[in-house]
Nucleic acid binder design. Structure first.
Length: 507
RNA sequence: GGCGCUAUCGUCUAGGGGUGAGGACGUGAGAUUCUCAAUCUCAAAACCCGGGUUCGAUUCCCGGUAGCGCUGCCA
């Protein structure tokens, strides 16, 4: 007699209070990887019981961020499913029903204490250095009194009776975790309005949605005994728990906005690739079985992911390592895709207009091919690309860093020879450029650095940049496009530079 | 304050009663290249502290310390 295992079902249950932060993104990813690797289901549930803080627009942003990361869900608020609705705000009746059941079975009771009273109790407890927990005042109320006060319309919340027994649960990453009930007060299940409190809603939902594994942040560890109490009161079986460590910032405090870019949408705006982000996030608290491999595709990740290799200690978020992975994935990415992704950045830098034609996109592939290895992410593009769109012969000649090129006899001869030839050459391509260079070499006797450096300065105004034979076709073809910042071709550049350089030399 | 979680190079991590404590990011040096970058090679860099168990602990146990979390009619 083989007992068939219940299907793997996991969920990601964010509150719609803003964009997806890296901590949550990592939780979502681990759930997703586990589901996909185990041929299970990944469920998205929106925890919007706090009506004041939840907004429809935030939910939209959240879904967008998760989807952009490449995580898809099998059941959720937008796609539906057998265990819906998937928004807690639409499940109030369900919570109310289970709350009533608990009151009837004697596991819960109505509490008439006002927030003001409770706050006062809390304060005195704190001032007496006592544990601030609910006194259980309303536990003793007689049936009659309760129904009388309820009928009089007095607002009542519903509280769970915490039993006098150790509340423990096995955790897949932390092992058996136990809590003494002394530290836990009778907490609120339902607010007077009937809206559920978090610790109640999660349990009801996770059970009804048949969640097999609850994988979430370890900030929920201390909440788990409360939830265990709810499971017991309802006579439900516990799911498997796996609590993931926190992601910290470099100063070892919880990662937050003040630490800079920490949300998925921000990373998207920076032009980071989603596969770089998921790869990086996977490395935070998890490692491949061989302990060595760090670059893992989405497929490798799902195939290799295992809860057994999750680490317990918190991890510090390291942007540098994310950038390293991003550079890696940019290198392996088709230029066509990267061009599309960099359009907004180049546009807002003023280098592109609203309409970008096919030829321009093809030309941009050349541009990216030349400068990509100089950037961590796409939004750094405007800087290395500047020398393509901006060239001013006077500035180039006057620039301090170019002084030695202007002043040295040898390099002036190179510039001179080169500029004359360019003027006569017509349109250049890499081959023609190389041929021209070797003519200059023969004429001036300069080679290597002494040959290329003056030419680089003459054509770009800079002492460093991408390889010249990549740059030349970019200049030439770029000049034929109509762009907000017209690109000057080699002949124009050389002419401008020569004019100012010669003038300076005449003195 | 109480309770809980955590502790290996600067950072992410592997490992585990006897190891030259492995890898990666970053850093430094060198090689290559027309420059920068990229690339390649090499190097420096760690078991939080104190007790216990043990022939032997970085590893197991206890305590301390530090960080983080919970202690809400937030989630």
């Amino acid at each position: 007699m083989t007992e068939s295992k219940p299907p793997i079902r996991v969920r990601f249950a964010p509150s719609p209070t803003g964009h997806l932060h890296v901590g949550n993104a990592r939780t979502a990813l681990f759930n997703w990887l586990f589901a996909r690797g185990q041929k299970g289901s990944f469920i998205l549930r929106i925890e919007d019981t706090d009506v004041e803080r939840s907004q429809a627009d935030f939910e939209r942003q959240l879904l967008e961020d998760i989807r952009w990361l490449g995580l898809d869900w099998d059941e959720g608020p937008d796609v539906g499913g057998l265990h819906g609705p998937y928004r807690q705000s639409e499940r109030t009746d369900i919570y109310r029903k289970h709350g009533m059941k608990l009151v009837e079975s004697g596991h819960a009771y109505y509490c008439f204490c006002t927030p003001l009273e409770l706050e006062a109790d809390r304060k005195t407890a704190l001032s007496q250095r006592r544990q601030p927990r609910y006194s259980g005042k309303c536990r003793q109320l007689s049936r009659e009194e309760v129904s009388r006060r309820r009928q009089a319309g007095e607002p009542a919340s519903t509280r769970l009776k915490i039993p006098e027994e150790v509340l423990s649960f096995p955790d897949l990453v932390h092992g058996l975790t136990r809590f003494s009930p002394d530290a836990i007060g009778d907490f609120i299940l339902l607010r007077p309005g009937g809206q559920p409190a978090y610790n109640f809603a999660v349990v009801v939902d996770d059970h009804l949605m048949q969640i097999s594994h609850v994988i979430r942040g370890d900030d929920h560890i201390s909440n788990t005994p409360r939830q265990v109490a709810v499971y017991r009161a309802l006579g439900w079986e516990l799911p498997q728990f796996a609590h993931l460590s926190t992601i910290l910032a470099g100063d070892r405090t919880r990662l937050s906005k003040r630490h800079g870019a920490t949300s998925v949408d921000h990373f998207r705006e920076m032009g980071l690739l989603p596969e770089a982000i998921t790869n990086y996030l996977a490395l935070l608290g998890w490692s491949a079985a061989d302990g060595v491999t760090e670059i893992l595709s989405r497929e490798q990740l799902t195939a290799q992911f295992s809860l057994a290799h999750i680490i317990k200690s918190p991890a510090v978020f390291d942007l540098q390592k994310l950038f390293w992975l991003n550079r890696h994935y940019m290198k392996g990415s088709p230029l066509e895709r990267l061009v599309k992704l960099s359009l907004p950045v180049l546009r807002s830098a003023g280098y592109l207009g609203e309409q970008v034609g096919k030829e321009t996109e093809q030309w941009l592939e050349l541009v990216l091919g030349a400068v990509l290895k100089n950037v961590d992410h796409l939004s750094q593009l405007p800087d290395p690309v500047r020398l393509i769109f901006h060239f001013d012969g006077r500035e180039a000649v006057q620039a301090e860093e170019n002084k030695d090129v202007i002043e040295s006899e040898d390099s002036r001869r190179v510039v001179d020879s080169f500029c004359q030839r360019v003027a006569a050459a017509g349109e250049l391509d890499s081959d023609k450029f190389r041929a021209l260079i070797s003519e200059v070499r023969n004429e001036t006797g300069q080679k290597g650095k002494n040959l290329f450096h003056p030419i680089r300065v003459a054509l770009t105004g800079r002492t460093s940049g991408p390889e010249m034979d990549k740059l030349v076709p970019i200049f030439e073809q770029g000049a034929k496009l109509s762009l907000p910042n017209p690109v000057k071709n080699c002949a124009e550049r050389a002419r401008e530079f020569a004019r100012f350089a010669l003038k300076g030399a005449a003195d």
